[in-house]
Amino acid sequence: MAAGEFRLRVCHAKSGRARFLSHLEVMRALERSSRRAALPYAVTKGFNPHMKAAFGPALPVGTAGEREYFDIWLTQPVPAAEALERLRRSTPGELGIREVRYVHEREPSLTAASTMARYEVAVGGEGVTAEGIAEALVTVIGEGRLEVERKGKTKVFDLARSLPEEVRVGSTGPPVIVEVTTRMGQEGSLRPDALLEEALSRAAVDGAVVSVTRTDILIEEEGVVRRPL
């Protein structure tokens, strides 16, 4: 942080229709919200000066988020409650601002620090039952590895590493709600819908993933798991 800059961390949603936005579209929309909020944002130096802001890990088009994050650097401290209010007024409801707090400049960047994410995956369809899904998941996870094909490339995930917490299957449905925690980072981020789709095809069940929501992004620090805010 340049001297005299203040790093404000913002937690927002990506819900409703906004789940169809790409990461780039969310970033641009929130930068515009911040300008509309007239926050005294810092501007980068260099060839192409722009708002100094940094965003958390990307969400795919179609996936919702309950607690997503970005950092914005201010040149003057605005009381957090006031910044929250101004951002709320200037942001579309689907990207609703939930919380803001100043964080220390030594706090690692959102993309580097965020290593786990929790998801809720809704699985719907005629033959879908909680037991069927749970059984198929046990089989898939028991094999220890999952091959995922995306854009013509095959990626292999070590499930012991990629699934740091137990997968929980809700008892009602369909749609059956499955809670999945996955690890993300440079070694690859397992998409929870890929895991569920594999389970559905193993169980030969006529069902489909109907929605995916990232409910939390998590930071692991010396064995402790915490939220970025």
Binding site: G16, R17, A18, F20, L21, S22, E25, A29, R32, S33, R36, V61, G62, P92, E94
Partner: peptide
């Protein structure tokens, strides 16, 4: 229909 088409953002409205 949106999960099946390119660029669903074209059809969602709700812009600022």
């Amino acid at each position: 229909l949106l999960p099946r088409v390119e660029r669903p953002v074209r059809y969602i409205n709700s812009e600022w």
